[in-house]
Amino acid sequence: MTASDAPGFCVHCGQTSPGGADHPACHNPRTALEPPRYCTFCARRLVVQVSPLGWTARCSRHGGTASG
């Protein structure tokens, strides 16, 4: 991974955020339980699937992640 591939976007709103961390406005108890909605590398909307056992989120360019 190069410096240009470092996380730089908030997973909840998609806005620029150093290190891919949540913004103070996005960081609250409700969002702590929410799956990510935006890719931290490119800010694209993620394809998110929620099930009773957890969630999966996939970026068309950078791949996927899952809860748990």
Rank of each mutant, 00 (worst) to 15 (best):
R44G: 01
T40S: 12
E34R: 15
C26K: 05
S17M: 06
G54Y: 07
R58M: 01
R45T: 12
H62N: 09
A57F: 06
T40Q: 11
C13Y: 09
L33S: 11
V47A: 06
C13I: 02
P35E: 06
S4Y: 03
H12S: 05
P35V: 01
T2C: 13
S17I: 00
H27I: 10
L33G: 08
P18I: 04
S60H: 13
Q49I: 00
A21Q: 11
G54Q: 08
V47K: 15
A3M: 10
G19R: 12
F41I: 00
T16K: 14
R61V: 05
G14I: 00
S4C: 09
V48P: 07
S60R: 15
C42N: 09
G8R: 13
P24E: 03
Y38H: 10
P24V: 04
Q15I: 00
P24H: 08
C59P: 06
S67P: 04
S4R: 10
V11M: 10
R30A: 14
S67K: 14
G14S: 08
C42P: 06
A32M: 13
P7T: 01
P35F: 12
G64H: 11
P52C: 12
V11W: 15
G64Q: 12
A25P: 03
V50N: 10
R58K: 14
P18N: 05
R61W: 01
D22F: 15
S51F: 08
P35T: 08
T31W: 11
P29D: 01
D22M: 09
R30G: 07
P18S: 08
V11C: 07
P29L: 13
V48D: 13
T65Y: 10
D5M: 13
P36S: 05
P18L: 06
R58Q: 15
F41K: 14
A32C: 12
R45G: 00
A66T: 10
R30K: 12
H27W: 14
L33T: 13
G63K: 01
P24Y: 09
R37T: 00
S67M: 06
A21G: 07
S60Q: 15
P24M: 02
T16A: 15
Q15H: 09
D22E: 05
T65I: 04
G19T: 08
F41V: 01
H27M: 07
P7Q: 11
D22N: 04
G14C: 05
A25C: 11
Q49R: 12
H27E: 02
A21S: 10
E34C: 09
L33W: 08
L53E: 04
P29R: 10
L46A: 02
S60C: 09
L33K: 15
G54W: 07
N28V: 15
C42L: 06
E34D: 10
A32K: 14
A25Q: 12
T40I: 03
L33C: 09
S17T: 02
C13K: 04
N28R: 11
G19W: 09
T31K: 06
R61A: 08
A25H: 14
V11K: 04
T65C: 05
V48T: 13
T65Q: 09
T56V: 02
T31H: 07
P24I: 02
C42I: 03
C59M: 03
F9R: 05
H12W: 15
V50S: 09
G19Q: 09
N28W: 13
H12E: 07
Y38C: 00
R44T: 04
A3S: 14
V50P: 07
